[in-house]
């Protein structure tokens, strides 16, 4: 069945079954392979994308549920201020180990900072508990989110560089 979906600011025509998960539409049809598969059952967060700015697990979000919503994937996260702050913090703290989980971690972290610009450790743990990292980079992820929040705060108060 044909669907017009809005991915990273461009309308894409895809012809797939109504129950096809967005993860496979993005990876196999649109060709955006930054979004990863981990579990397929909402347990790991590797497949996190944004749908109208909110985090969504793509591994079982049927394409028919998305409609005309704006979808953002890891490939364009850097276009947002939050995405830039997260990338800078991630590089600064060398957060990544193998990297497999990290696009999902960054998409979840971005959704968290959009909703809560100054999260506490507890706020971070509550949201990021849905994202698993087999390499165990949790401590650096939490530190990276705090650092990104600081960069964002400095840029809005004008005290940043």
């Amino acid at each position: 069945m044909p669907y017009s979906i809005n991915v990273n600011g461009a309308v894409r025509e895809v012809d797939v079954d109504a129950d096809t998960p967005m993860l496979w539409v993005l990876r196999d049809v649109v060709g955006l392979t930054g979004t990863k598969y981990g579990c397929g059952v909402a347990m790991c967060g590797a497949c996190t994308i944004h749908v109208d700015g909110k985090a969504r697990r793509a591994c079982f979000t049927p394409v028919s549920n998305v409609g005309s919503a704006q979808i953002r994937t890891i490939e364009t996260l850097h276009e947002t201020a939050v995405g830039q702050a997260l990338q800078r913090a991630w590089r600064e703290l060398d957060v990544v180990q193998c990297g497999y989980c990290q696009s999902g971690q960054l998409m979840s972290a971005a959704a968290l900072l959009e909703a809560n610009p100054r999260p506490s450790d507890d706020d971070i743990d509550m949201v990021m508990a849905g994202n698993i990292c087999r390499c165990g980079t949790y401590g650096r992820i939490r530190a990276g989110i705090h650092l990104a929040a600081r960069y964002l705060n400095e840029s809005t108060t004008g005290s940043g560089q």
Partner: peptide
């Protein structure tokens, strides 16, 4: 759910089968 992780991050508008 907490800010940044609403229920519908995972729960769709209908029961959704998995292949797992």
């Amino acid at each position: 759910g907490p800010p940044g992780l609403p229920c519908n991050t995972c729960h769709q508008v209908q029961n959704t089968p998995t292949n797992v």
